[in-house]
Amino acid sequence: MNFDLITSKENALFQDIRNLQATGSNGQKARLASGQALLEGIHLVQTWVGDPNLTVLLTSEIGLKNIEISQAVYEHLEICPEAKVLQLDSALWDLLSDLVNAPHIAGLLDLPKSTLTPPQSIATLDGDVVILDRVQDAGNVGSILRAAAASSFTKVIALSGCAHLWSSKVLRAGMGAHRLLDLYEGWTNQQLLSAVTAPLLVATADAEHDLFSLKKDLLHPVAWVMGSEGQGVSEDLLAQSKGVSIPIDPRVESLNVSTAAAVCLFETLRVRRG
């Protein structure tokens, strides 16, 4: 099978793909403007094999010699024959990926409707929600998304100031969790308070309510709020929330935000199963 070839770094499509990898606000603007994100690596591509939103696969002659990569490419084409495959000159691959010894496979994914829906057009968001308040480390954000998916919290709102949920680093840290989640981002505190119907619970070190005493609260839909690594949850959200502390050894100052999120989400799951 013949695939379209890209041999020059000046190729317009190649430049567009590189823009999707940009960090900070430039990358976020590029992804939202194009409505696409870049999936890097075999694991992420395999996660979306068979999904029509995976519209383009990127590989190379070297990549197609890899059994795992060629299997993913041809399996996806069999299920989604409208998908395109672009074969990059192998020399371009180091420019495309910042992963060391990266396998020559990537994909362009159409962003889901929830990501592209303006927050002002969402009147209510019912049920369980995970809320990220200015969590800026991509590894933390991706880990929280993974914990949310694993604990069946399928709605995640990232308030303004968070790492972009569809950046390359967050996607890698999420390990495919994105496919299981409804992701909303760029919301203001007021938009959140207007739309979310579940009571807000904030994980904070000095709260009077102990996580392990919240059985009645956790049996019903809740909105867990996880705050910025340095500043915690904003004051106006704290004022609208119930503070919850995680009991830890007093010799340890605090937990990483992604660890705290996992503890809270899985305690919610444990209570409901019990």
Rank of each mutant, 00 (worst) to 15 (best):
D206A: 10
D206G: 04
L200S: 02
H178M: 13
V196R: 00
A198W: 07
T204F: 00
G176C: 15
G176N: 09
W187T: 00
T204S: 11
H164T: 03
S194V: 02
W187D: 03
M175N: 06
R172Y: 08
H164K: 04
M175Q: 13
D182E: 15
L180T: 07
S194Y: 01
L193Q: 15
T204I: 02
T204V: 08
W187V: 05
L180M: 14
V196C: 08
V196I: 03
T204C: 04
L200Q: 13
L193H: 12
K169A: 12
S194A: 12
C162I: 01
A177W: 03
T204K: 12
L181H: 01
L192I: 05
G176E: 12
A163E: 15
G176S: 12
L171P: 04
D206M: 05
Y184K: 01
L181D: 03
L192H: 03
V202D: 01
L200W: 04
T204R: 09
M175A: 15
K169L: 06
L171G: 05
A205D: 08
Y184I: 06
A198T: 11
G174I: 06
Y184S: 05
K169D: 07
S160I: 15
V196N: 06
A195V: 05
L165M: 15
R172M: 15
D206C: 05
G161L: 10
S168P: 07
E185Y: 05
Q191A: 12
A205Y: 00
G161D: 08
